[in-house]
Every structure is written in C-alpha cells, then in structure tokens.
C-alpha cells in the first residue's frame, strides 16, 4: 500500500474529521447530529465520509477498540534493518502473517537508530508473540539485524487530532 495517495479534501472535510474524532454519537441519527455541529445536512456528512473512505483518507470506519482491556497486553514492536532495495520483499514476508497488525517502513536515524522496517504484533501472551517473531525470522527475515521492543506502560492512546481553530484551518488551507 502506498502512502502517496492523491487526496482532495477541503476545510469542510477537516471540520468533519474534527467533529467525529471523539466518536460518532450513540443515538438514532448520529450523522444528523454531526451535521448540526458542522453546519451540514445529514446527507452531506454521509457523502463526505463516504468520499474520504473511497479515497483512502479514512482507512476504516467503525468500532475503534483498545487492545489491553481485551487481554492483548503483549504488544511488540519489531524492527529490522533491511537494505532499501530489499524492503518491499521483506515487508511481503512479514505481512503474509495474519498476526501482524501493522507494517511500516520509516526513516533511519544513524547512528542512534539504524532500523527501517517495523511491524506490530498484539498478543495475549508474551511467549506466544515471541514465537510469532521467530516464525517471521524463519520465513526469511533472519539475516537482517533486528530488535523487539515490547510495550510496558501505555501513557496515552487516542485517535489523531484534527484541530478546528481558525488559525490552524488557515494553515491547513
């Protein structure tokens, strides 16, 4: 999946994302309620969300859950240092495993951080997650230097914030 997606959004889309960032109201006509705070009709709200979903700006729309209260406490970020020209192939191996939640390539920061390929695994037991990481390594990632960083404390987790202050709206435009 490429991050360089062509997107067309305007201030109204951003206002809409800001209005729903804490969640859709739990009532009979939630999109109508969002329309009231954004000065749009229910139909416009729905059409704009649908459009952003089709464009891939919204990667999914639905229930957003916390892993931890459901018992998913073994949360590992595994990082590899893979030569740039081999990253796509390595990512293909990683994402072929259905226990992988996310897989990203990020910039390296030599000399403190030489890793560029990341994946997240959310599991219920550390020992199982460790086995899953070994499975990925056996499938072809073993030659590359890697590190596993389990999460300890969660200080904060919310969705991305979209500001609605006039100053920010100008900067966004």
């Amino acid at each position: 999946m490429n991050m360089h997606i062509k997107v067309t959004t305007d201030d109204k889309d951003r206002a809409l994302l800001a209005a729903i960032q804490d969640g859709l109201p739990l009532c009979e006509r939630p999109f109508a309620e969002i329309g009231k705070v954004t000065n749009m009709s229910e139909e416009q709200v729905i059409a704009r969300i649908e459009h952003m979903r089709q464009q891939g700006i919204i990667s999914r729309f639905g229930l957003v859950l916390q892993h931890r209260p459901l018992g998913y406490r073994a949360n590992a970020m595994v990082v590899w240092n893979v030569p740039d020209q081999e990253v796509d192939e390595a990512a293909k191996i990683i994402t072929a495993h259905d226990f992988v939640t996310l897989c990203y390539c990020r910039a390296r920061r030599a000399p403190v951080w030489q890793f560029n390929l990341y994946c997240m695994i959310h599991g219920q037991q550390r020992s199982i997650v460790e086995q899953q990481i070994e499975t990925i390594k056996s499938a072809g990632l073993a030659p590359y230097p890697s590190k596993t960083l389990f999460s300890l404390r969660r200080f904060k987790q919310t969705g991305a914030r979209f500001s609605t202050t006039p100053e920010n709206e100008r900067r966004l435009g």
Binding site: M3, Q21, L24, I57, V64, G159, A160
Partner: peptide, 21 residues
C-alpha cells in the same frame, strides 16, 4: 457498556497517516 469498560475508544474513522496533515 463497551465504552464504560474501556474496551471501545470510539465509533469513528481511522485516518491513514500523512493523507491529511
């Protein structure tokens, strides 16, 4: 109930990184 128990964060959108902002 899911929200009160800390399981549900919200019903809403997950925005793809770097498409907006």
């Amino acid at each position: 109930s899911l929200k009160q128990r800390g399981i549900l964060t919200r019903v809403g959108a997950v925005v793809r990184p770097n498409t907006i902002g």
